[in-house]
Computed example of a mutant assay.
Amino acid sequence: AENLRKGSKGGDVLALGQAEQGELLARLTATNADERMPPEGAPLKPEEIKAIREWIAAGAPLPQSETAEAAPREHWAFQVPRRVPLPGNAGNPIDDLLEARLTKRGLKAQPPAERTILIRRLYLDLIGLPPTGEQLQDERRWEAIVEELLASPYYGERWARHWMDIWRYSDWYGLGDEVRDSQKQLWRWRDWIVTSLNENKGYDQMVREMLAADEITPRNLETVAATGFWARSYYKFNRTTWLDNTVEHTGKAFMGLTMNCAKCHDHKYDPIDHLDYYKFRAIF
């Protein structure tokens, strides 16, 4: 109700106290199917329209129990991160936060796992392969085992799978030799991801190269392979579809936002309007 009273970019939705002059009632009572609301299904019943007319005539009073929704930009995801004091002294920040939450709920953490279990978890987490029986008995310092696994070529292969899922890696699709989606040489992008991880390239640099390697280092073909991110969205038959896919999956991959919702209208719950969508698309 609060949003109805505020109106929209197109003007007032309600003419408070003057029901017949408002856009809302005009839409609800329209005889043209292209203008009537709701756009699908049966129109509202006469008694339902009568109740709405009386509500508007009375000044559209808000329900006493209603509280207005917070502005989308106030959501925590759009706030500048800030450091907060740690609630305890468990040894590291993550354990501090977990311990505080467990204590609040009257729970206790499990005791530390056995070393062989920790080693197994470490191998599976970093390289995706279980340790051998001999590796399970490794008595070196924990840091030495971690460094060895991070230096393994399997590390890049293991974690590239995660990022390729987010960035939508897949082979090309077509008919015969005709490429319709993606590109035949996209495997070069896959190899670039693996190599970048094994070279300990920063995430920020990886993003820059995927978005603009052809501008940053146009003569370095190994780096230009990063732009396979763009080639993945290629669609032969419609450039608009190609651009729409690019906007959608760039927004999802790097911002966690469904920008494609704003292609036809302002986003329903994120602070992205219709104009923002086409400003963003113009980049590509």
Rank of each mutant, 00 (worst) to 15 (best):
G251I: 05
N198S: 08
E157C: 01
P43E: 05
Y278L: 01
L129N: 13
K279R: 13
P131N: 12
V146K: 05
S182R: 12
K279M: 09
A151T: 06
I216K: 12
L122D: 05
A253F: 07
A15Y: 09
E222N: 13
R180H: 12
P38M: 09
K279W: 11
R82N: 14
M259L: 15
Q137I: 05
A282F: 02
N92S: 12
M206Q: 14
A160V: 06
D12L: 07
V207Q: 01
V84R: 12
C264S: 14
S152F: 03
G228Q: 13
W142H: 01
A30F: 03
R73P: 07
N245A: 09
E178W: 05
V179E: 07
K6T: 00
G202V: 01
N32V: 12
D244P: 04
S8C: 01
W187T: 15
A58C: 02
E99Y: 08
E2F: 14
K50E: 01
L28P: 09
T29H: 06
S152E: 09
L25F: 06
K263W: 10
A212W: 11
G228A: 05
G59L: 01
E2Q: 09
A100P: 02
I56M: 05
E2V: 02
V224R: 10
N32R: 02
S196R: 05
W159P: 11
N200Y: 07
V80D: 14
Q135R: 02
A144H: 13
P130I: 05
S152C: 04
P130S: 12
P271K: 06
M255L: 14
H265R: 03
I193V: 14
A113R: 05
K279S: 09
R188Q: 13
Y234T: 12
Q110N: 14
A77D: 11
A42F: 03
F284N: 12
A19Y: 01
A71L: 14
E248I: 01
G228E: 13
P93D: 11
W163T: 07
F237E: 06
D95M: 11
G156Q: 00
L24K: 14
D125F: 08
K45Y: 00
W163N: 08
K263P: 08
L197K: 03
